[in-house]
């Protein structure tokens, strides 16, 4: 039986299997990768907020493009300044009547869900979040009732992970995450 372990084929197979198992998500295209430092430094506004409503409509003269306004409330501003109790984030895409405009890769916002957002270029950019999906985090409650953060996905039908999935993900608490953001804000710029 042990002969198989010495066989060249078996050794090659093992190497192949190991390579497959160790294959990391190399990523592909479309979006520039952003580090956590960049999320903080490039954003104009970092806030925690809960999605209250979504409104889609045409807001270009030729009615060629659908935008959706995401109304956020229960705000906690971490970077920047905001004097209103609500904040409107304008994103591209949505549904008006029988027409649906889909932009693959854009995060989906779910009413009632709380998010941490690294915002830049609102009402100006195609999707006004630094690094697109990289700058959107969901705030969830774990089994112990603590608020934790997870990178947002684009799946609006399952806005929350199960308790078991949350445990597996070992999420950072919201408080620790925001401490990390704030520590970036006070870190002096590196000079040569």
């Amino acid at each position: 039986m042990t002969a198989i372990f010495r066989h060249p084929f078996f050794r090659c197979a093992l190497v192949g299997v190991a390579a497959l198992l160790m294959a990391m998500p190399a990523g592909a295209l479309s979006v520039v990768q952003r580090s956590f430092d960049e999320l903080v430094s490039l954003s104009e506004l970092v806030l925690v907020g809960t999605v209250r409503e979504l409104h889609s409509g045409y807001d270009t003269p030729d009615r060629n493009i659908i935008h959706t306004q995401v109304i956020l409330s229960d705000l906690e501003v971490v970077k920047g300044r905001l004097d209103t109790a609500q904040y409107t984030l304008r994103i591209t895409g949505g549904q008006v009547g029988d027409r649906i405009d889909v932009y693959p890769g854009l995060p989906q916002f779910h009413p009632g869900q709380r998010y941490v957002l690294f915002i830049r270029g609102n009402f100006r950019d195609f999707f006004p979040v630094v690094g697109i999906q990289q700058g959107v985090y969901q705030v969830l409650k774990d089994g112990a009732g603590r608020e934790v953060v997870l990178p947002a996905t684009g799946d609006e039908t399952r806005p929350a992970l199960s308790a078991a999935q949350l445990l597996d993900a070992h999420p950072e608490t919201l408080a620790a995450f925001l401490r990390r953001v704030r520590s970036q804000l006070i870190t002096p710029a590196v000079t040569p």
Partner: peptide, 12 residues
């Protein structure tokens, strides 16, 4: 709008 951090966009 500016592309922001997007390199290319597909609309469906």
């Amino acid at each position: 709008e500016p592309f922001g951090d997007v390199l290319a966009i597909t609309s469906r």
